[in-house]
Simulated scan of single mutants.
Amino acid sequence: MKMRLIIPGLIVAIAFSACNQSAKTIGSDTADSTSVGTPPTADLKDEHTQKVYNSYLKLKDVLVASDSSGASEAGKELAVALGAIKGCENTSTLATKISASADLKTQRTHFTALSSDIVDLMKHTDVNSGALYVQFCPMANEGAGGYWLAAEKEVRNPYYGDEMLNCGEVKETIGIGKN
């Protein structure tokens, strides 16, 4: 009987510690570390793609802060920015789905597919200066994992917010100044 209780506890402990094995960052994990509106560190050559990137970062930041109403607003802004780019209609629809939901879990689920499209878009855009960081959390989406873009190397997980703020790692750097 005791083994039935111990094994699930060990599995949860191992899964949680896997995310905490990523590089530790300087600073604390307090609420101020999830502030919204981090200025983008990359300057893109195309102004429409720049608007998408800026809007995407706002959405990512409000998901980090677990702010579902902020995600709805940011999703609307991103949908408009994506609508200005030919071929991004389906991705704009994903942003609209985020804006139409008040449920944080649903928003984060749509964010997974949206991020995949946005990462692909950014990989095919020209960067004047700075870098974009493709980050990944193996725990997101019930263990299926999830990618997202960030303006900084420091991991701030949009799939879990404060629950697992630093779960993830940088998988790729797009742009100038790759380290």
Rank of each mutant, 00 (worst) to 15 (best):
W148H: 00
D32N: 07
A42R: 02
S68H: 11
V134L: 06
V134R: 06
S115H: 04
K178E: 07
E89Y: 04
Y133H: 07
A42P: 11
H124I: 01
V127G: 07
A13Q: 01
A113C: 02
I7N: 05
V80C: 04
T25K: 11
K51N: 15
M139D: 00
T30N: 07
G83W: 09
P138I: 07
S66W: 12
E89T: 12
D67A: 10
K51C: 08
E163C: 05
R108N: 09
P39C: 06
A150R: 04
D67S: 14
N157Y: 01
K123I: 03
D126F: 03
A150Y: 01
A74P: 09
T25H: 14
D120G: 10
Y159L: 02
S116A: 11
K58V: 04
I26V: 15
A23P: 13
S22V: 11
L121Q: 07
N141I: 05
G87M: 15
T91F: 01
I174D: 00
T112M: 01
L114H: 08
E73P: 01
L165H: 05
G75M: 09
Y133P: 00
G168W: 04
A23I: 10
L59D: 05
G146K: 02
K97M: 11
L94Y: 10
H48N: 14
E47M: 11
S68Q: 14
